[in-house]
Amino acid sequence: MNISRRTFLKDAGLLVAAMGMGPALLPTVAEALEEMATGRAPILWLQGQSCSGCSVSLLNSESPGPADLVTRYLSLYFHQTLSAATGEAAKEAMARAIEAGGYILVVEGAVPLGMPEACRIAEENFVSLLTRAASKAKAVVSVGACASFGGIPAAPPNLTGAAAVSEALERAGIQVPLIHLPGCPPHPAWIVGNLVQVLKVGIPELDEFRRPKRTYGQLLHEQCPYFANYQAKKFALHPGDAGCLFKLGCQGVVTHSDCSSRGWNGGVNWCIRGRAVCIGCARPEFAKDPAFPFYRLNEKPETV
């Protein structure tokens, strides 16, 4: 292949910077990218009870960009939204991939454990497909709030018994390295950076919720540009007000993510800079409790 080592080094440099890794990791990451490009680390991407938002977020990756990702880096054996293969050809592609095994299984969406018919692919319940695919995988990466923790589909009354991938694998008795990349959706750099890490360095250091510490180790609040406002008790009380959004319901104080230092969509903006509250989409509890609304504007005045 006539892609030069320099290309990998350049992409690796951007990725190392984006992930906040030390420069010492540069050669390792470049090597990982090269290995991904030579197809030694294929990816099988399955969608359960998902909205495809995580896939769309992946396509918003800045370094490497989406074209390089889809072609030379990700070796996507099968992806429901991107694969040319459809119908019989798609079913066969999945079958061939699973038979060969040794891929990274990326899962997007929750698993309807209580109502298996609520998600079917090629006449097979998703629970069963997931179990078959996971048992042949080198590692499983749960991408997004739904795959990691059940997410919105698992909010009460949870008509389908939606659950996290981890729960489905536990029930099936499948032992496989598993990491969680929550967020609704997760930032593309969280997905790409951690895939590289899983491929090359191995499973990253995880916290008690199986989240990579490097990505989810920081409290958003501590790096928030409105931290000074918080300390000075300068709070926004109405949407559009200046000041810290804490009293409007902002969950930056309990959410672990690097949004405040990273920014979204090429860094052009992010929730709080857009003067919207952090909804805590990277938290395990995201959207689960109806008594804990995203905005506190309907609370009775004495409780604000």
Partner: peptide, 19 residues
Amino acid sequence: QEAHRMAALFGGKMPHTAT
């Protein structure tokens, strides 16, 4: 991807806007 950067400029982020 560029169109999503546009949406994020006033939407906060994409996919799933905040603002």
